[in-house]
Structure formats: C-alpha cells, structure tokens
Design a protein around this nucleic acid. Sequence first.
DNA 1: TACACCGGGGTCTGCCATGGCT
DNA 2: AGCCATGGCAGACCCCGGTGTA
Length: 383
Amino acid sequence: MTPRRVLQAMHIYLHKTRIYHFPQNGLPAALLKISCLRFCTAIQNDPTKSTKRPENRILLNNLSFLGVDIKMARKRQPGVLRRETTNEKGLVQFLRNKGADHKTIASIISRYPRAITRSICHLEERWQLWRNIFKVDSDIIKIVERSPESYFRSSDNENLEKNINFLCSLGLTAKDLHRMFTTAPRTFSNSLELNKQMVEFLQELCVCLGGDDPNDFVKRIITKNVYILIRSTKRVKSNIEFLKESLKLTNDTILKLLQGQGADLLDLSNHYITVNFNNAAKKLRLLDCTDEEIRKFFTTYPPGLYVSSDNLSNKIDCLLEDTICIEQILKSPRVLECSVATLKSRLNKLAKVRYNFEDQGISILEYSRKRFEAKLEKLNEEL
DNA sequence: TACACCGGGGTCTGCCATGGCT
DNA sequence: AGCCATGGCAGACCCCGGTGTA
C-alpha cells in the first residue's frame, strides 16, 4: 500500500466508524490516536481471502502458558486459534491492570476466546463506557468473570454507547442501568435496533390494552423484569396471548399484572408456562377448585406459574398434610413463596407451640425469618 | 402493637443457528 | 469458504421489610 492509499483508506475508515461525527469540538489528539490504532487493528485483523489455516502454534503456546483450557477454547471458537494476529498479551495486561488474577483471565479466555481479538483501544474504550455505570473496576471484573461472552461478544462500542443513551432516554435512572448492567449485561451487546424493537413492541402493547402512558408502562416493565430486553418479542407476545386466553383477563387486569408480579412471566418459554398452567390447574381441580377459582389464584398470584408445577404441587401437599385446607391457601397464596424446606420447618415449629391455623390464619408462614423467629419466641413464652 | 398487604431485591449463562462480510 | 457478530433458546424462586389499619 502506498502512503497515499493508506491515507485514503483511513479516511474511509474514519467515516465508516463515524469517528468524524464524534460530538466534541473537533477531534482531540487522543481520540485521533485511538482511531489510528483502531484502523491499524482493523487492517491487521482483516480476514480477507482466508482459507482454512492451521492453528497458530505460537498462539497455542501463549494460551497454554496463560493456563487457558485449549480444548474448551477450540470447541467454542476454533477460528480464533487459527488467527495470525491476536492480542492475548494486551488483553492479559489490560485485565491484570483492572485487578483480575491469572486464574480469572485464563477462565475468561477459555470460555470466550474471541476476547483476545479485541485491541487495547477497543478494550479501554469499552471499559470507560462501563465505568460510567460502575464506581470501581472490581465490580466490572466480577461481571466479566461471570459472563465473558456478555462483555466481549460485541465489537461495537458505539452501539453500546447508543444503548446506554437510549435506555436513559426512556427515563431509566442510573440505579436502574446499574442493575441492568449487573444482572442482564447481554442487553448492552444487543443491537440498538433489537432493543428498540422490544421497547416499541411494549409501547404498542400498552396502547392496544388501553393504557394511557406507554413510556411509563415500558419503564415499569423493564424495572420489574431486567431480563426483558434479552427476550425475543416472539416469546413475550406468545406469553401475553397465553395469559390473556388461559386466565381470561381483561385488558385492564393484564396491564396491571404485567407491571407488577406478572412481569417475570414474560421470561418463560411458552411451552413451560403452558405445561405449568395445565399441571397446576389439574392439581387444583383434584382438590375441588373451580375453573374460576383457579384463574383467580394465578391472577392474584402469578409466581404460581413461574415455579415448576412439581414444586408447586409439593408445597400444596406439604400444607395440606398439616391442618391447612385449600381454601386457606387460595386466600393467602403467598405462603407458597416459601421453599418446601422452610414450610416444613415452620410447620414443625408451630406444631410444637400448638398453633391453630384455623383460628389464627396461615400468613405466619410467609413472615420474614426475623419476624417469624420473634413471633415464635412469643408463642413459646405464652405456653 | 400485631398483623395483613404488598412492593422490592438478589439473580442469569452457555450454547447453537444464521446472515453478512471478506 | 471461513469467520464474525448477533439473535434466540432452555433453564425454572425465595426472602425481606415498609406501611396502613384495626
């Protein structure tokens, strides 16, 4: 390449990557430097005319030395091991500077080998974007260690920045964003377009259901269910259809449900939610509940559809084995939020103080641990 | 003061398929 | 043809405590 060609190519690159549109006064020297480095990385990593190359021996040696599980890496992204140019040394240095230890770094590369193809500039830029959300490096390291793919899968930092701006524009607070980055980091590797699609779908849904504030509706759903943006609209759509039909809900009820306890239901696979509903309904019918009572049960207690039907059935049986009847469970379904183990242990303890569920109700079972222990102590004193 | 009611909080990746690019 | 980026899927709760009210 002649110097003139290089300059031309770089010109095109800067336009293509929209670096010229950076919203600052002109292009700062540091940024220009980053752009040049990115350009160099881009042309170095150009896989043009790649035929199936053999694995890069030097790279394999480097990775082995770092303690990377080569077998795992090969299984996950074999193409990376054949690359001539990689940046494993830069990545290691970078992560080490951020506080990651050897073992963590090896595990990250083993699980998401493509991480070693990211340039230092890319890594630094992405980190800075994350640092706008997190106070300390160690918080980010924890997430990268937990889910290297979520962090490294996208090479598009600009898209990440746009996603952050987009979610802010929906009225989500810094705290909401922090929670999303922590819990569902994949959201920020989604294309902006995909995230917009889900938001628009939810806004339209709100309008269809007769809601008068689509923006607030979306905000509420996202804060109630931070995973919503990593689900497909297809899944969310079919779950809403299912809820509408099987629970025979009015538009108003479904609006309330989705903004409250029912938001989590949108995560489930349509098959799972259907099987769960059918099995649980069967169980309740055997206990002489009417269809109307069953629908009311799930409407007032949507988590009943989230928990596996076996687990739900075990909890009900556990309560019925005591002196509790199904009517009481239908009246206070939240007792089913306790694990079977907690229920059993509480039922035992209450039997010892001769607690009468018929007179005193069953809501004592859903107390927090602290409150339950305090209440139990009192009951013991009264004996 | 005790309790019912209810909202909030933690938590979630690793794999496969596919379309686009070079 | 091979690789990359990205979409989508399966998987499957439990606990705490604030607050209004009787």
